[in-house]
């Protein structure tokens, strides 16, 4: 494996007596899209801002592309791209002027025409920023994050507050980036976004990472088993259910739900049993646990365990 693009080791950030980041460690490989999740106040933004070079760390080590972001070197800034949480543009400049101004900061800027086309703003180039919609402003900010042709791109809640159409456009752009070998660090509160974009994710609660891995890994480790749901038309619960479905329980209105460790075995037993009893199973579903439900249960469990208490 190559050297990681980003390496964080024992990172700590305190504000006075409050511990915002409590000794976290992770690596991000080049070309990977890495999502950092967590409730508000979990320390995500502090972590991202230390990686971006905006904040000084209290302890630990950070390596981004071989640079220590805390030293805030120009060479470091030339190789990262930023999309901050809130819009930060001069409202009176046009799209073209804004992106041209930013391109002048970088030694090898991307071609502006191609960039504006790829974010769908080629027809808006003479419009002033204040005349753009929220989605257009956000897409321009992503273009500004990319104008220096960075190796690492930070995206802090890139689609918060956007309509689904604008959000999909931004997702497509981010997916293209990782195809071009860019490392992307993403924060989001939208689990669908994380599932669509992230190769790996870390969930932060109270300054600590409490789950990390690929989406299937996190789902597999923390999410429990797939869930079979079916409709049983008779009053009495089926006493003679097959063994793999023994845990099925009625959720009301004759709907039965069961978590199963081996879905293939459970399904074959269920269909055999249904054939035997003349049940048509036309409401049968099998679902994997959603990232959202897993995220909520991890955060909840961590809070209850008193993890990361200060």
């Amino acid at each position: 494996m190559n050297d990681p693009a980003v390496s964080v080791d024992g990172l700590v950030k305190t504000y006075g007596n409050a511990v915002a980041v409590n000794g976290i460690s992770f690596d991000i490989a080049p070309g990977e899209t890495f999502a950092l999740l967590g409730p508000n106040g979990a320390g995500k933004t502090s972590t991202i801002e230390m990686l971006e070079g905006y904040r000084k760390r209290t302890a630990g080590n950070i390596d981004v592309l071989g640079f220590d972001p805390g030293r805030n070197r120009r060479e470091f800034r030339e190789r990262i791209g930023l999309v901050l949480q809130s819009t930060a543009l001069e409202p009176e400049l046009t799209v073209q002027e804004t992106i041209t101004a930013f391109s002048e900061f970088y030694p090898k800027p991307a071609r502006i025409d191609g960039l504006l086309t790829s974010v769908g703003l080629a027809d808006q180039r003479t419009k002033r920023i204040k005349a753009l919609s929220g989605g257009q402003q956000r897409r321009l900010e992503i273009a500004l994050g990319l104008v220096g042709d960075p190796d690492v791109l930070f995206l802090d809640e890139p689609t918060t507050g956007l309509d689904p159409d604008a959000r999909n456009g931004i997702w497509r752009m981010i997916q293209q980036l990782s195809g071009r070998g860019k490392t992307v660090i993403l924060t989001s509160h939208n689990m669908a976004e994380v599932e669509a974009l992230a190769d790996r994710l870390a969930i932060m609660v109270s300054g600590e990472i409490c789950a990390i891995g690929t989406v299937p890994e996190v789902v597999g480790l923390y999410g429990g088993n797939p869930r079979i749901t079916f409709w049983w038309p008779h009053e009495a619960p089926p006493g003679d259910l097959p063994p793999s479905l023994a845990g099925a329980h009625d959720t009301g209105d004759n709907w039965y739900v069961c978590e199963v460790a081996e879905p293939a075995l459970a399904l074959s037993e269920l269909t055999g049993w249904a054939g035997l009893h003349g049940v048509d199973l036309n409401h049968l579903t099998i679902t994997k646990p959603s990232l959202e439900s897993i995220y909520l249960s991890i955060v909840d469990r961590f809070h209850q365990a008193g993890g990361g208490s200060q």
Partner: peptide, 8 residues
């Protein structure tokens, strides 16, 4: 803040 995050 945004400008501070560029090489300028």
């Amino acid at each position: 803040k945004r400008i501070r995050g560029t090489p300028l």
